[in-house]
Nucleic acid binder design. Structure first.
Lengths: 255, 255
DNA sequence: GGTGCTGCCTCACGTCACGTGAGGTGCAAG
DNA sequence: CTTGCACCTCACGTGACGTGAGGCAGCACC
């Protein structure tokens, strides 16, 4: 029926001290005490604790959580709605950060440098207008800096050359299929897409079909990647994306 | 070429004090100072700051971040890989939390109560074996508590009754289609699924097709929901899920 | 050439959400 | 009966900054 601090702490994955603290600041005052002064938490207290931990996980300060939970106009359902909203927003933000990391990895793999604006913009607090004239003299424009970047990315010159050679080979083969007029979902083309994916997985980072598709989208949407592919052969960026998508669809059907 | 504290702070969306702090603890010491003692941050410093903010966002303590970044055996690519790994892990965790919230919302909507274990298990630190005997006397088993829950969820008795009536009507209509032998993707059935979705959106929480599909999965995977549907008519849980999926596919094709 | 403003500096104490003992109590088992 | 365990209440420590206080550097304007 009612529970001790230790039980609640173990149950909720927090420490006893945390419960003491929440009691001290009035955020979660146990509904009862034993004659010996031991805290006793009821089921309603646990419900409240669950809400507290949820909002805490989402980064709310404890005082604010108290305000939210003590709001008499807020029923449990409205809390759930708000939590769901906050969660999806946070998930989207993290997905953008993950996409930024993927961009950075892919850029490194292909030897492209990102501008500093792009480096920070994933953190959200970034307003491009705020430093318009600052953006002019781009930090990454020194050849010396680019060289340092490149050296850091290169394990050894020979490794790097081998990677370039294989990548160029794949790109060239895909460009040939495009020139030959093959559709992007032709078996020969999706096979090349698969080889592209496996190549990345082996030498750079684990790349499943979903991530590979995101890369493909990037090739047409990010002008730096588009430029790289269009330089090999006009239309190759889109063709690569479509081939990657077709290969993913093929794999999904097979699996 | 090099930047002042104010510039960097504005750029990265942090305060000047934070940069001072990172300087104090040796996490990010600017490469240079002017004769007046003003901090000057180079491009390499900004790269490091970006890494710092990334790891900080992922919840690392500053001291640990310093260790990570000062590890001579860690090249930039390994950082990116680790960050991507951490991000996807965090995203998965938040997705599970969101799913738990969806379960809670749907449970409330359908008048089912979750056990306290289920309430806390999304926080991850939860080990079911750890309190096996504790699980026996489930907190939610008191009729009094369930009643309190139900009262809290109910805006007014009449509202609640109206909702029940409409929901029962939809469920009954779907059960009839199942009894009639209609396939789940029959227009009449997907129309009912769409009505179900809109009903939830109107009276409970915004429910797009994607979320609706997750709900459908829940109906067959979560025994409490399964039991609720099977009680209406055997096979209805799966039938609902398939109808919902078919309706979502139909909407995707149309859109 | 003073005056004021802005941006930077260095202490140094405040805060939030706890962590970490120190020292004492209640009670069930050996 | 004492040993052990879980609980209690101070009370100070900590991490990651926030928030002034008091002061210097350079530039604009009167």
């Amino acid at each position: 029926m009612s529970h001790s601090v230790g039980q609640v702490a173990g149950f909720a994955g927090i420490t006893v001290r945390t419960l003491h603290h929440y009691d001290e600041i009035g955020l979660l005052v146990p509904s009862a005490r034993t004659t010996a002064g031991h805290r006793r938490y009821t089921d309603a207290d646990l419900d409240r604790l669950q809400q507290i931990l949820f909002y805490r996980e989402l980064g709310f300060p404890l005082e604010e959580i108290a305000v939210l939970l003590d709001d008499p106009a807020a029923d449990p359902v409205s809390h759930l709605r708000r939590q769901h909203h906050l969660l999806t927003a946070r998930i989207d933000q993290l997905k953008e950060m993950a996409a930024a990391v993927e961009r950075a990895m892919e850029a490194r793999r292909m030897g492209i440098n990102l501008t500093p604006e792009e480096k920070f913009e994933v953190f959200g607090d970034f307003d491009p207008d705020e430093h318009a004239e600052e953006a002019e003299r781009r930090w990454g424009d020194s050849a010396q800096y680019r060289e340092a970047q490149r050296r850091a990315a290169t394990c050894s010159k020979e490794d790097w050359k081998a990677l370039r050679r294989e990548m160029d080979e794949i790109h060239g083969a895909v460009a040939d299929r495009l020139a030959a007029g093959d559709p992007p979902d032709a078996p020969a083309v999706t096979a090349l897409a698969e080889r592209h994916r496996l190549f990345i997985s082996r030498f750079s980072y684990e790349c499943d079909h979903q991530m590979h598709c995101r890369l493909g989208e990037m090739y047409v949407q990010d002008e730096r990647f588009t430029a790289t592919y269009e330089a090999i052969r006009p239309g190759l960026a889109r063709y690569m994306r479509d081939a990657i998508a077709a290969n993913a669809a093929r794999a999904a059907d097979a699996g």
